[in-house]
Amino acid sequence: MDEILTLAGQNLLSPVILFFVLGLLAALARSDLSFPEAIAKGMSLYLLFAIGFKGGASVADYGADISLALAVMAGVGLSFVLPFAAFVLLKTLARGVSATDAAAVAGHYGSISIVTFVAATSLLSASGIAFEGYMVAVAAAMEAPAIVSALWLATRSGAGGKMDSDLWREILLNGSIVLLLGAFAIGWITGERGMTEIAPFIEAPFKGVLCLFLLDMGIVAGRGLRSARGVVTPGVLLFGLLMPLVGAAFGLVSGLALGLSVGGVAVLMTLSASASYIAVPAAMRVALPRANPALYLTLALGITFPFNLTLGIPLYMSIAQFLAGG
């Protein structure tokens, strides 16, 4: 318990988290602090490029074996399954939520938040805990399958849901996935030589850019919370705090079954606990336009994201150390 509190304290006082809190408070206090859309997108592209490349270079360093394929398959499986758990939990905790809204929310919780992933890997690195470089590929693999499950849930509930070629393109070829996987492949191909060449660009400025990006995320989350009055009922709030723990439990069991390292288990728990707020909202706006965007954005970005960032990640790391560190 002491260890969890120490880790949580260390995490809470890191610049990354404090900048997120600054953005959140600034938005709640109605400050005019904001980032132009192009800069926010630019920072997001930089982070995806850097983590993809570093993951690929790390795989080139340590070599890839069957464990990579198994971990990616487990990620795909988790992304397919988690929306069902999220759907049932949300409908149980908040009976007033419509099937369409519950399906859309479920899709977000089956998919992942890449910034939460980055925050977890930063904390792991700061604590000197190694993790498998291919977890970046697992993260990319977990982005899309949840959308299929969410649309199946929506269709089954009579809420409709369109799955056409445009949507498939939106899901499979969205910029984040292309850049993340592309950078991962280039990092893998070029290995240590490539890493040496671009390390000054992707290592030294990384934390600073992450701080700025989280400042922006804090502003967006705060703005969302401010305009979400009436959306967040006690049941919805409880779901936003409980679902990450349910997801993390799924990730824990899968990570242990795969025989991942302590860091790998913590990362898989974090991925399973996180909720998408970039790729899935765009897909849901196309496929399930009747679902309320205020509900899924507030849950994913306003409740679950801050929870994971502050308390969730240290908790998942401690549990992984306790159960996989033996």
Partner: peptide, 16 residues
């Protein structure tokens, strides 16, 4: 009718 929105700071096209 769906509330206020701004493109500032958003990284997802979903809210533009």
């Amino acid at each position: 009718a769906s509330g206020r929105w701004t493109r500032e700071g958003n990284v997802s096209r979903a809210f533009s």
